[in-house]
Write a protein that binds this DNA or RNA. Structure first.
Lengths: 142, 142
DNA sequence: GCTTGAACCTCTAGTAGCTAGAGGATGTAG
DNA sequence: CTACATCCTCTAGCTACTAGAGGTTCAAGC
């Protein structure tokens, strides 16, 4: 029987976060002591590890919910899990492409700045005038 | 004199977002008609363009606030603006590095999945067992 | 058995950067 | 002068947590 603090240390998840996962139904309600404190077993430790690892790979909580559901049904075809992972891979690749464009633009800005007054600052100038951009970077967000 | 809708179209910013920027003090309070509707001038259009362009380059609203302040003081040395841009560049590079590691791991997962039952699914297996990972990917978040 | 203090509990509110909707007022074209 | 697109304010919601207040429980040491 593990306390929430032990689970926290073993998985590198903050205590509050574990309770949050329970609240949104990602973690099951654990048993309680007479005094009302949560006690976990190894199945729940595994589940939390799964969640954490998936988060580290960038999966959304919704995606993780799907993956956990699939994981609970061993006889279903694994295409769905595969599709979720592919979707995630695609997202990561899109984000990388966008960041690459941003990096190009930022590098250019920084390199052109010669360190005078803000009035002549290339950085600010580029930000003021989008038409100076060489790359497209239309989307906002990570 | 531009309505908020016109400003919205010209900058590709949602009307609600413009009002939000005003609320948090990033955009100045504009003039109003007798009936209370906002009316903007070209200086405000420029400011909003600056904000939007900076957002597209991934700057946080706080960073943009600093950049706008600097932009308003033409005689200060531009080192600060330069530093903000460099900081942003660094962040972008860090995020790229992390995404690269994620991509590697996701690719491996997806390629190893041979399409059987979920019980044998490589995707789920990898998620279950962190020790199978070849790459480090300790941080959560974009 | 009793005390102490770390760890637990619930609840609320805050973070970034918006976005959506309710319910009502205004402005302008025909 | 009417219709209706656009505007107004206000509140609440999104993701994925995180922090803190104020109070209770557990386990170890004496």
């Amino acid at each position: 029987m593990l306390t929430i603090g032990t689970l926290s240390k073993k998985t590198g998840t903050k205590v509050q976060t574990i309770r949050y996962y329970e609240q949104i139904g990602l973690m099951p309600e654990p048993g309680r002591t007479e005094g009302g404190q949560r006690r976990y077993d190894n199945a729940q430790l595994d589940r939390l590890s799964f969640i954490r690892h998936s988060r580290q790979l960038g999966f959304s909580l919704d995606a993780i919910r799907e993956l956990l559901d699939l994981s609970d049904q061993p006889n279903r075809p694994c295409e769905e899990a595969d599709a979720i992972a592919r979707r995630q891979l695609k997202q990561v690749e899109q984000r990388m492409a966008r960041l690459k464009a941003l990096r190009t633009e930022l590098k250019r800005m920084v390199h052109e700045c010669s360190g005078g007054r803000t009035a002549d600052c290339k950085v600010l100038e580029v930000l003021r005038d989008h038409s100076e951009c060489l790359t497209e970077h239309d989307e906002i967000g990570a």
